[in-house]
């Protein structure tokens, strides 16, 4: 079984370049604007789209993504609306992979089986659930794999060689390397050390490795893309979105463009380098 994620990374490997993976919060700043932004992402250069499922208590996220989640919730975002947003996107794009990212409780309360069925039907390709380590794989990871969704795991600087096989065992789609010990949007990773870490992970898996947490500019994206299969940008996009809002936190005529122009820059960064490591 292959998913859109597998197919996308295979295509990019043939093209000899890394993926630009973009993260935005579903429903931020409101459902309609968020859908308009997501629809514009592939043209702007996003290769894989991550959509955050907002949660009141995002314990691994920094201030930018915390605030994005709260804006979405305030605007009335729910799990059902997040899935509707994916359906809305899929109506016009059947190729770009969509990964839902968030925390377990909203999924658990929606109901694991119902969630997997609805997500699959909506056109979701993969899941990243921050607070489900391999030790809790029976909760969602194994059922998700059975339902035909990729379960993308985070590997971190604290995941040593002894633990990596555990982390990678049920991972599919790609591996998301968290480049720093810290919350989203914090320190900027050191490209050299990231390259070493990616090489270390690749000794354990044939899956593509995307790198995120702290990637903010086209230059960062370029240096990360040189040593990895993908660069994930989240907080910087969420910040660009926020700075386009009016004083009440509502979307303005500039909001969609604020995000897409940064995505364009980042995409140029990512596409500007030939891969240094064979995938």
């Amino acid at each position: 079984m292959t998913t859109r994620i597998d197919r996308r990374f295979a295509t990019l490997k043939e093209e000899g370049r890394a993926a630009l993976v973009t993260f935005l919060m579903a429903g931020d700043p409101d459902a309609d604007t968020a859908l308009a932004i997501v629809k514009a992402l592939p043209d702007a250069g996003a290769d894989v789209i991550e959509l955050g499922m907002p949660f009141t208590d995002p314990m691994a996220d920094g201030p930018a993504i915390q605030a994005a989640g709260l804006r979405a919730l305030k605007a009335g975002q729910t799990m059902a609306k997040t899935l509707a947003m994916v359906r809305g996107f899929r109506a016009g794009d059947d190729a770009t992979p969509i990964v839902l990212m968030g925390y377990y409780n909203p999924i658990y309360i929606y109901g694991v089986d119902r969630f997997l069925a609805d997500a699959k039907a909506a056109g979701v390709d993969g899941l990243i659930v921050v607070d489900l380590p391999p030790e809790e794989d029976t909760e969602l990871c194994l059922p998700a794999l059975k339902a035909g969704l990729n379960f993308i795991r985070l590997a971190t600087p604290t995941t040593d060689d002894r633990r990596l096989p555990t982390v990678l065992a049920n991972t599919s789609g790609f591996v998301y390397y968290v480049s720093i010990t810290g919350i989203t949007g914090a320190a900027t990773p050191d490209a050299g050390r990231v390259g070493d870490a990616v090489a270390r992970i690749k000794r354990h898996t044939a899956l593509p490795v995307a790198v995120g947490f702290g990637v903010k500019t086209a230059a960062h994206a370029r240096s990360i893309a040189a040593g990895a299969d993908g660069a994930v940008v989240g907080s910087a996009l969420v910040d660009a979105l926020r700075s386009s809002l009016d004083a009440d936190g509502k979307a303005t005529s500039k909001t969609v463009k604020a995000v897409t122009s940064l995505v364009r820059e980042l995409a140029e960064g990512v596409r500007g380098v030939a891969r240094q490591t064979a995938g």
Binding site: P133, A155, T158, V178
Partner: peptide, 20 residues
Amino acid sequence: RHGHFGIFGGRFVAETLMPL
């Protein structure tokens, strides 16, 4: 040994914290 009291408890933390 997994920290469960019936269905309750467990270790629902980010991977960064899991080794700790």
